[in-house]
């Protein structure tokens, strides 16, 4: 089985966000970048599926500037076999970015293309489903369980108030949610081995983007609240505040 995992490089979730002067993007100075946490579920799923099958190939694919190579090497260190760097600047239009990924994926002979459910920077949550649509392949998003047997894929995803089961045939596109697995840490041997694994670079560029960032700003601060009291004795005061001030009871 040949599996592609499309990954992104994002600011660490503990990072404090500072808006760059132009007001449309963050200031990356001093920000630590990490592999997108949801992509780690996809990487783990790919590596585990290959281990389970005993053969096949796993490929990490990233579209972005040169800095994504570090993220690709993290994927290689975890156990991915090789990496493809589509070198260029992604746009704010998920569909335009999806087309760039498809330019590589369509002739890659992949049985499975995996994504993280979303990237914790732009929260776009669309590229995976769009890639599936462009490739005319079945797609399940935000899966929390996965079983691949023969040519059949069984998934479970969490929806409001329950879980939804679905099946489809390979080749397919899946996006992975938390709960699917526990991603492994790259081992030290893996980190050393990553240096020797192939990382192919192909220039790429977006065309026909239909989304433009007008502005990026910090959210308004929440007005300061107050301590209504200490211990159980403060419960009546809280209830009073919720009823007559906040009017939420």
């Amino acid at each position: 089985m040949k599996i592609a995992v499309c990954i992104r490089r994002v600011p660490d979730t503990t990072a404090k966000i500072v808006i760059a002067a132009a007001g449309t993007a963050i200031d990356p100075a001093g920000v630590k970048f990490v592999p997108n946490p949801y992509d780690e579920f996809a990487l783990e799923a790919a590596i585990a599926l290959k281990e389970q099958a005993g053969d096949g190939e796993t490929v990490a694919v990233a579209f972005g500037p040169d800095s994504v190579q570090e993220t690709l090497r993290t994927a290689l260190a975890m156990g991915i076999d090789r990496a493809v760097h589509l070198q260029g600047e992604p746009s704010a239009d998920g569909l335009a970015n999806a087309r760039v990924l498809v330019s590589h994926l369509k002739d890659g002979g992949y049985d499975l293309v995996l994504f993280g459910k979303l990237a914790v920077d732009d929260y776009g949550q669309q590229t995976g489903a769009m890639v599936a649509e462009l490739l005319e392949r079945p797609c399940a998003t935000a899966i929390a369980e996965l079983e691949v047997q023969g040519g059949t894929v069984k998934v479970m995803r969490e929806i409001e108030g329950g879980t939804e089961g679905a099946t489809c045939a390979l080749p397919a596109v899946l996006t992975c949610d938390k709960g699917l697995n526990n991603p492994r840490l790259p081992s030290l041997k893996g980190i050393m081995a990553a240096k020797k694994k192939p990382l192919d670079v192909t220039p790429a560029s977006v065309e026909g983007a239909q989304a433009t960032v007008v502005s990026l700003a910090l959210p308004p601060e929440r007005p300061a609240g107050r301590i209504v009291g200490e211990g159980a004795a403060a419960v009546p005061a809280l209830l009073e505040a919720l009823t007559s001030e906040a009017k939420v009871l």
Partner: peptide
């Protein structure tokens, strides 16, 4: 829309039939 999990707010213009 909130981005960075609500740590920032993005305003986006979408063309076509979004």
């Amino acid at each position: 829309r909130p981005v960075y999990a609500g740590k920032a707010i993005q305003v986006l213009d979408l063309a076509g039939t979004p």
